[in-house]
């Protein structure tokens, strides 16, 4: 399966990054530059992802059968995690979304720990919300 172009970029960049500091720098960079930002006006309770210790807002839309995601968070590294998550799934159709192994994706980026069940960063909750909303 070929990766969406943005996902391929992420994979190339993160594979080349060595050590947690470089990965964290990349995350901040992705969060600042590559996150489809949810407009302020939509950062309300309805868009807030429950289960995140940090506030995360997410909007899932389907246009012409394609997923279109926007997200926001006040935390820079969380924005980065959202950006690489969205890079993997934005533009896919529902069928393709079903085939995504999100743990494998974060693992490939060297970010596997960020999806562990004890994490309160909410990436698990964000992923569940994407799956539910796109059904």
């Amino acid at each position: 399966m070929t990766l969406p172009a943005n996902a391929q970029h992420a994979l190339d960049a993160f594979s080349a990054a060595e050590g947690w500091e470089n990965r964290a720098r990349l995350l901040m960079q992705w969060g600042a530059q590559a996150l489809p930002e949810l407009p302020e006006a939509l950062r309300d309770e309805a868009h807030r992802v429950a289960g995140c210790e940090t506030a995360v807002w997410l909007n899932v839309e389907v246009h012409d059968e394609r997923l279109r995601l926007q997200a926001a968070s006040d935390a820079r590294l969380i924005r980065g995690l959202l950006a690489v998550l969205i890079a993997r799934v934005n533009g896919l159709d529902r069928e393709a979304l079903k085939g995504i192994d999100i743990h494998a994706w974060f693992d490939q980026l060297g970010l596997a720990r960020q999806l562990s069940p004890s994490r309160t960063n909410g990436m698990n909750a964000v992923w569940q919300r994407i799956l539910t909303a796109s059904r």
Partner: peptide, 12 residues
């Protein structure tokens, strides 16, 4: 952000 700080501490 406290979450970012926690992330960086946990990585260490």
């Amino acid at each position: 952000h406290a979450t970012d700080l926690a992330y960086a501490l946990s990585e260490q």
